[in-house]
């Protein structure tokens, strides 16, 4: 899941300062689950923005809508009608959602209400952790299903650094040492022999370093 966090109310207020009719768009997928940009969060932000603007004597005409997924045109088309009546759109989706809406409405300002953070999972109520960088060349099989590229602060591929202390990361003691997790996991699944193989430097070419990536799957094209 894509994990995002809301921008501060003051920042959101600045983003829309020049507009009087604004459409707030929530997204019903990842950001709803991570409690950042679903119907509810859009509602709370709307209360805050309406009040802030009323106090400033510049009332805001605000419309709220939450669509199933902001990253798909099929759902974005539901915004055509409400968007036509507003000066600007504020997307409570991830960065992909914001850009998808901006592409769909080329003459309408579109702003991001969230800071998109990472690909992660829910650890416990309201706690999310990063699990995947989206590097484009998954090596999880070699590490027992635990990604050192994402979860080791130094991206070590051949065992822990010297700073791993009592199973915690030296960069942030709040974080478990990824290599400790990998060792324990490989031991549990009787694959410790994998550690005998030297992992060559990672091939970063499939990653984002050369700009935005594109995937075409001919077998599914129509």
């Amino acid at each position: 899941m894509i994990v995002a966090s809301p921008k501060p109310v003051t920042e959101l207020k600045k983003l829309i300062a020049r507009h009087d009719k604004v459409l707030f768009v929530g997204c019903g997928t990842c950001v709803t689950v991570c409690l950042a940009g679903g119907e509810r969060e859009v509602g709370i932000a709307s209360y805050a923005m309406r009040m802030a603007r009323k106090i400033e004597g510049q009332p805001l005409e605000l419309t709220q809508i939450t669509i199933e997924r902001q990253c798909e045109n099929e759902f974005i088309k539901d915004l055509a009608e409400p968007a036509s009546k507003t000066d600007a759109i504020v997307s409570f989706g991830c960065g992909a959602g914001v850009q998808a809406i901006a592409e769909r409405f080329p003459h309408k300002p579109v702003y991001a209400a969230l800071n998109t953070q990472f690909l992660g999972i829910l650890e416990e109520q309201a706690v999310w952790t990063e699990k995947c960088l989206g590097c484009g060349d998954c090596m999880l099989a070699e590490f027992g299903g635990i990604c050192p590229v994402t979860r080791c602060a130094k991206r070590m591929l051949n065992g822990p650094c010297g700073g791993s202390t009592e199973q915690r990361c030296e960069v942030d003691a709040d974080r478990p040492c990824a290599w400790q997790l990998i060792y324990t996991r490989l031991k549990n699944i009787n694959q410790l022999d994998r550690l005998d193989t030297i992992v060559p430097p990672k091939d970063w070419r499939p990653s984002w370093h050369a700009g935005a990536r594109k995937i075409v799957r001919p077998e599914h094209r129509v």
Binding site: K13, A48, M51, A52, I55
Partner: peptide
């Protein structure tokens, strides 16, 4: 916090 930020 929100009330402080919006001036209420």
């Amino acid at each position: 916090e929100i009330l402080d930020q919006i001036g209420v």
